[in-house]
């Protein structure tokens, strides 16, 4: 069985976001990491190989040369091979185009189980994995906190609103990871060295024969949320402060 993990390189979660004069997000100074949710998926794939439930684990990403760093990190964690679809020169891809490209690459490299984080912490859209499953015509289980892989099927615990659902479906399928799936490992130094020799293939959209549609929506502008002024602090004894706070919440903020 072959597991392919979809990963995305994103801004580090502690990154400060700034806009340049033309209103574009400044990305050059920002530290990039593998999307934290995708790391759970990578860890799960490695464990499946370690438990001999899968023969091979690969990572697949749409990105640019910078993304290689993230892919190397996944290789150092323990996946066997990496595939990059280089989108440089495409001028950005929306969720639908991204999904088309990933699905085309998946068909090319083959898969039995596709894993991915359920959302990327940068664009927060949570669309790509579900769209990929649709294009490939395979079932999916979204936001999974525990996964059991059997011969031809999977059993997945999914955190739905207010309840946990245990779902079963057939392979091939796509499963997205929630944070409680596992605890991703850190790459060790020997594995970082080994990762340098593991295969990293690069495709262009043209190699995949994908017809690039024009995007379905357009960003009119990015803007920073209005900053809050800083808290109005209430002093005095705990009882005085509490009384003043509750009064402000009722009369000023009008939220209670």
């Amino acid at each position: 069985m072959k597991v392919v993990v979809l990963v995305k390189q994103t801004f580090a979660t502690e990154a400060r976001i700034e806009l340049d004069e033309s209103g574009e997000i400044i990305s050059s100074r920002v530290k990039k990491v593998v999307n934290p949710y995708d790391e759970f998926a990578v860890e799960e794939a490695i464990q499946l190989v370690e438990r001999k439930q899968a023969e091979k684990a690969a990572v697949l990403s749409l990105g640019n040369t910078e993304t290689q760093e993230g892919l190397r990190q996944c290789l150092a964690m323990g996946v066997d091979e990496a595939v990059l679809i280089d989108e440089s020169g495409m001028g950005g891809a929306d969720s639908s185009i991204t999904a088309e490209l990933l699905a085309a690459a998946l068909k090319k490299i083959g898969f039995d189980l596709i894993l991915s984080g359920y959302v990327a912490v940068d664009d927060n859209a949570a669309q790509v994995p579900m769209r990929v499953a649709e294009i490939l015509g395979i079932p999916h289980v979204n936001v999974v906190s525990r996964l059991e892989v059997q011969e031809n099927s999977v059993k997945a615990w999914r955190e739905a609103d207010g309840r946990t659902e245990v779902l079963a479906t057939q392979l091939p399928c796509l499963v997205t990871a929630d944070k409680s799936l596992n605890k991703p490992r850190y790459p060790t130094l020997p594995n970082i060295m080994k990762a340098k020799k593991k295969p990293l293939a690069t495709y262009t959209p043209a190699d995949l024969g994908v017809d690039l549609k024009s995007p379905g929506c357009r960003v009119v502008r990015h803007f920073l949320p209005a900053g809050r002024a800083g808290a109005h602090l209430f002093d005095g004894t705990p009882s005085e402060a509490a009384a003043a706070l509750v009064s402000a919440l009722r009369n000023e903020a009008k939220v209670v």
């Binding site: 976001i17 997000i25 940068d122 927060n124 024009s214 960003v219 990015h222």
Partner: peptide
């Protein structure tokens, strides 16, 4: 986006 650090205004085409 970016965990609420930036807001996007989107036009649907």
């Amino acid at each position: 986006c970016y965990a609420g650090k930036v807001f996007d205004e989107i036009e649907m085409l």
